[in-house]
Design a protein around this nucleic acid. Structure first.
Lengths: 345, 345
DNA sequence: CGACGGCATGTGAACGTACACATGCCCGGC
DNA sequence: GCCGGGCATGTGTACGTTCACATGCCGTCG
């Protein structure tokens, strides 16, 4: 490795080009290009000579030149509204990893807002960088409409399934996960279950709401007006205090773990005990979920696998190959201490 | 905005180049280039004509071509070992935002390991993309040695302060934060305080350890052998159970919140009450810290500000400007319910 | 009053790659 | 034995930008 560092250090002379390699190998620059792009018609012996020259000079293709002539770079863009949060962040990490092993770099762009203008700006920034494709983690319904409306010629994939998906998005079965969570509460004996939902136009919020409603309907249980949250623990805390006043329920299904944890805090502040007085179930299974008190019952999502699949799907699209078919990512219920049978009075 | 989407949609003809703009404005391509690069010697009237042509054609400079000829792209690389975690993720989010408003794109690369080989691979990947600079969030001591050893000609900035920093890293005063946390426990009356430290070669782990030791020394208190963790809540849980057996302490200062939360869980499992039997203090102030039970006393870090400063520092270096001078980012103690006076028996 | 310097602009080339086309060769079929 | 075709390779050029150098003009100073 010392050799490797030696090689790249202090070298002020211009980096070797494809022609330098050609000269050393005694072939034309085009032959070198063919070797690099794995052209079939090339004699193994010639190929080897070129490869030797490449490693002798420590040659690396100039990506900018390649991007210029092909008008496409080996970069995929990740567009996300909430880069800082656990789900997106861990998906991005694996997207980055998967893309890089396939030879693609990853550039991220944060969506400051979900307005069509902001989305347009973000997409145009990415397109201007001549990225090969886009992974969208901004799960608002609008984003889809805007993207489709822009009719950009860049392939894109979304980590969330929109209703009426066109096959360009992935199925992490949110509806089923939410159904599982709610059914778990019903199985425990709860009949009055409130849903602490996510923001109005988020696809995930919608799916989880649907799963919740499906479960209630299947059990012929009454629907209680849901509370609209903003995904944050702070809101959960606030909602807990508010809900405690109402008291017309024995369990809450929160649309994500952060709100669920805040919610338990709010209940505690209001003098309610979880799970004796109220059961709480979350969604996502973030790393701390099992360590808070009481350990949070939640629905586990495989974010890394989601990221890997997104890259695979996107690259297939970019390369014009047939899209791989994935089974749905089955969410799993993790029953813990925050949910229990209701206390009968 | 409909116009904007209209403009970019369905356009199959090649994007306008600098020469198209020149033709429309009735000048040479070089004059257009001068306008783009804000060359001083240009008549305002000519400049205006060029600008009009640019907006008429909706011209955008081709970044690949620019990168090719200048052999430098407007991309900054972010190298991180733990992209998925809260601290790095929220720093990256603001780095991305700050960089983008300055006209730079951001590409991230994950460090799968902290070995010199892995670091070398990551750096070379970034250099190959001709990035303008690197922000390092991989806070292992080694990373610095490797980077310096490689003597790359790309400016880089680190989010962590190494001992003997060369001014190319930022001061988020970790030592002071840890000292505050420990002093808080001492002020409450604790005399036997264990440190649940981070992994051996992490700069942050080292700094927090030092702050802890400083506080003990200032108060003439005995040192207890620290426990080495891996930053995860799961390890914290394990450590809690193990430590409960020893019982030669009344408080623990954990090097991060995740471990602190796991630790409280472990203590609970072992039948200890926090804060009655043991006080716990964390570090980072992640969003759930105030909502867990008991709400976690911790040291607040301003990750977003850290990200912004990193970009500012890096861009100054890239542009050859003088480095801005920042005051140290003062960490703040957030005293909550997980710490209390020791229970005297 | 002529030369000279700075301003405003233009001309030509270069960056490093991939693509289109051209070339020479060998092999097999009629 | 000749010709067509595929294989292996070479030649030239385009991509869109910036840089180095050239040019024409005007004002100023000796």
């Amino acid at each position: 490795m010392e050799q490797a560092t030696e090689r790249t250090s202090g070298r002020r002379s211009p980096a070797p080009s494809i022609r330098d390699v050609a000269r050393l190998a005694g072939v034309s620059h085009q032959t070198v290009s063919r070797v690099l792009n794995e052209h079939p018609s090339i004699r193994p012996e010639t190929k080897q000579r070129v490869l030797d020259a490449i490693s002798a000079l420590d040659y690396r293709p100039n990506l900018a030149a390649r991007a210029l002539v092909t008008s496409r770079s080996n970069v995929i863009g990740v567009m996300s509204a909430t880069i800082g949060e656990f789900g997106p962040a861990s998906s991005i990490a694996t997207i980055e990893e998967a893309a890089r092993t396939e030879g693609y770099a990853v550039t991220t762009v944060n969506l400051p807002a979900t307005t069509p203008e902001a989305i347009g700006v973000a997409v145009r920034q990415l397109v201007r960088e001549q990225i090969a494709g886009i992974v969208v983690i901004a799960p608002q319904v609008r984003v889809f409409h805007v993207l489709r409306g822009m009719a950009i010629d860049v392939p894109f994939v979304s980590l969330q399934t929109a209703s009426g998906a066109t096959g360009e998005s992935l199925a992490a079965d949110q509806v089923e996960g939410a159904r599982l969570a709610t059914a778990h509460l019903i199985d425990l004996g709860h009949r009055d279950i409130v849903h602490l939902a996510g923001p109005q136009d988020w696809i995930e919020a919608e799916s989880r709401m649907r799963g919740y409603l499906d479960a209630l309907r299947d059990a012929d249980l009454p629907t209680i007006a849901p509370v609209r949250g903003d995904w944050t623990a702070d809101f959960g805390h606030f909602a807990g205090i508010e809900l405690a006043r109402r008291g017309d329920f024995t369990a809450v299904f929160a649309a994500n773990d952060l709100m669920a944890i805040g919610l338990m805090h709010g209940f505690r502040d209001a003098g309610l005990d979880v799970p004796r007085d109220v059961s709480v179930v979350g969604f996502d299974d973030i790393p701390v979920a099992q360590h808070v008190w009481p350990p949070l019952t939640t629905v586990h999502q495989d974010f890394p696998e989601l990221g890997r699949r997104a890259v695979e799907l996107l690259l297939a699209d970019i390369r014009g190959e047939e899209a791989p078919v994935f089974g749905p990512l089955e969410p799993q219920l993790r029953a813990r201490a925050s949910s229990a049978a209701p206390w009968r009075d």
